[in-house]
Every structure is written in structure tokens, then in C-alpha cells.
């Protein structure tokens, strides 16, 4: 796989997510809120990576963790 970009992975902590909707503001189409008001990933390819990084930074409770190849992305 040398030379192939390694995909970004998103994980959302459902305990700390407060349902602010900031992630879907910064990266609409990638994130949305479910019926319980908790964030989930709709489509990781729906927006550019920089927007997903802004969404993680903009999460008020830091409930979104981004990793690539097992390492944190900030």
C-alpha cells in the first residue's frame, strides 16, 4: 500500500457528545445528529478533510477523535 493515502477515521464519544450541532455546521453532510441528538458520521467522504478537522476542533466537548493509521490527527 506504499504511496496510497491512508484514510481518516472518525470516532464519536456518545457519552460526552452534547448534541450542539457544531460538527454538522463545520462539516455539513459528514456529520449529523441522530434522533437522540447525538452526533454520527453520515458520510466521511461528503466533505474535505480540512472541514472535518475544523468540526473536531469546534466540538465544545471534544467528543470527536480523528485518527489516521492509528495515530491522532489534529
Amino acid at each position: 500500500m506504499r504511496g496510497e493515502p491512508v484514510a481518516l477515521e472518525i470516532s464519536i464519544n456518545r457519552e460526552t457528545c452534547m448534541g450542539s450541532g457544531n460538527c454538522s455546521f463545520w462539516a455539513p453532510g459528514v456529520f449529523d445528529l441522530d434522533d437522540d441528538g447525538i452526533a454520527f458520521v453520515v458520510d466521511i467522504d461528503a466533505g474535505p478533510e480540512e472541514k472535518i478537522i475544523l468540526a473536531a476542533q469546534g466540538c465544545p466537548t471534544q467528543a470527536i477523535t480523528l485518527t489516521r493509521d492509528g495515530r491522532p490527527v489534529e
Binding site: 457544531n22 455546521f25 463545520w26 476542533q57
Partner: peptide
């Protein structure tokens, strides 16, 4: 270049009305 600011606060008390204000 847009990036998150902190005028609406942060943490569990972050402004509830962000979407209404916008």
C-alpha cells in the same frame, strides 16, 4: 480562513442558541 472561535463559549455550557443566532 474560517476556524472555530470561542465567542459562543465552549464546553457543556456552550451557547444553546448558536443556530438561532446565525
Amino acid at each position: 480562513e474560517p476556524q472555530p472561535h470561542i465567542a459562543f463559549g465552549a464546553g457543556p455550557h456552550m451557547c444553546l442558541g448558536i443556530h438561532l443566532a446565525r
